[in-house]
Amino acid sequence: MMIGSVKRLAAATAIAAAIAIGGAVASRAEDAPAGDLVNGKRLYLADGCFECHGRAGQGGRFNYLTPALAQIALPVESFIAFLREAPNDMPSFSADVLSDKDAADIHAYLSSLPGPKAAKDIPPILNQ
């Protein structure tokens, strides 16, 4: 991935803000990068991404709410920049432990995960 001219810290901050206000996002399937979904899923589980963001990419909590990543809205270049200089307690993943190729595969896998359903079809949700 070419991210050479990206000012990483600034990008990470902007991306964090984008995630914070993201909430339910529209499908970005048309923008999904070509990537190896099988390898992306393997890494998402093996590298522990699911520990905070959930196996279904549903989000969760660490010391604060961790965002849902299913149908991720970030473009792949921004996603990689974010991983390299992650804010707060989100681990930063250097290229030594996670290559750009592997990160792009994770991004492709996240893009493939189903997003929210219509709550009207789920009685226990309606009953909240």
Binding site: G23, A24, G54, R55, A56, G57, Q58, G59, G60, A68, A70, P114, G115, P116, K117, A118, A119, I122, P123, P124, I125, N127, Q128
Partner: peptide
């Protein structure tokens, strides 16, 4: 509520589903 629908049918069960089912 919208967030809670992600992974609704997944196993292991999502914490959102447990909390929604219990509260219901």
């Amino acid at each position: 509520k919208l967030d809670a629908t992600i992974g609704w049918d997944a196993s292991p069960i999502t914490t959102a589903r447990l909390c929604a089912e219990l509260y219901s």
